[in-house]
Design a protein around this nucleic acid. Sequence first.
DNA 1: TATACTGATGTCAGAAGCTGACATCAGGGG
DNA 2: CCCCTGATGTCAGCTTCTGACATCAGTATA
Lengths: 171, 171
Amino acid sequence: MDLYGGRGYEQTTVAEIAKRAGLTERTFFRHFSDKREVLFAGSHELEQAMVAAVEEAPADASPLAAAMAALERIAEFFAERRPHSRRRQAIINANPELQERERNKLASLSVSLAYALRERGVSESRAILAAEMAIAIFKLAFERWLEDAKQRDMLYHVRSALKDLKSVALS
Amino acid sequence: MDLYGGRGYEQTTVAEIAKRAGLTERTFFRHFSDKREVLFAGSHELEQAMVAAVEEAPADASPLAAAMAALERIAEFFAERRPHSRRRQAIINANPELQERERNKLASLSVSLAYALRERGVSESRAILAAEMAIAIFKLAFERWLEDAKQRDMLYHVRSALKDLKSVALS
DNA sequence: TATACTGATGTCAGAAGCTGACATCAGGGG
DNA sequence: CCCCTGATGTCAGCTTCTGACATCAGTATA
């Protein structure tokens, strides 16, 4: 992140990263499939936590409510990491390739959530749509949370986005 | 598409594509920024048509209704292209890098739709969410349309997905 | 204690994607 | 007939990423 932030993502070479870590270029590629992947290493854990939240949601919760449980579950995770998240996001926002990868991660997350919803007996179409809506809410809430001058927490923004989404869907 | 379909995306080299077209590798990269971009060349026109549909939607249409107008506008475009679309999608589905790019295009489309909605006076949050919902509907409808044994048209699947989305949002 | 195994790392060579700089060439306008 | 422009070719080179093989440290096991 120091290097990507300092000289820019494109300008920093894998060789530099490896050297900075006291390792070889080859070793870098054994740990990360991609030059981009370094920035997204932790995303798998987050995904698992969210899936678990869906699985543990009350049996009578609606698909959307169950998907929202996933967002509420991770809301606290972000609380202490605002500075880190801002730095990271600034790097991603500065480079299309990284945004591409980020969208990929969110898409993968959406698929996992939809699968977890299906396991709850939700129909395929409705599971997919509920998951996509949850992701849309997450993206919006995350963006708002990062730039919120009042520093309201993630939960606030998630709920605010959900409210907007419902009003839009009904109109 | 012949090459990507035949030998697979990864196995085909840009040199081969260029040779097949009777051109140079260098020329290929002057026409397409990427090896992937060949498959997504036409997407800009589609995006513009959809934006136009949003702009031309009745002034009293809700944000979601305006976004849906974009989907209805292009529904007929796909009608004659089902064989081509299937072939193309099979190639994309077989390769993660291409899926990544496809998601990128849809994200770009979402941003454009949201912008067009904003121009209609919709608030930022609601514009973003309406656009995202439209994209979610499009993705689902497109998938269903491709695999529909009954060959019902795109419009049918778009409307069916919209109905599901509304029911999920309300639950 | 010696040996074998395992996992992480290093070394090396090379393919493929992509870019910059410069040359060429065809067609259109003055 | 000349000049300009846009598209293409040529070439050199960087960077990402991969496969194959070597090394080395720690650990289990005989």
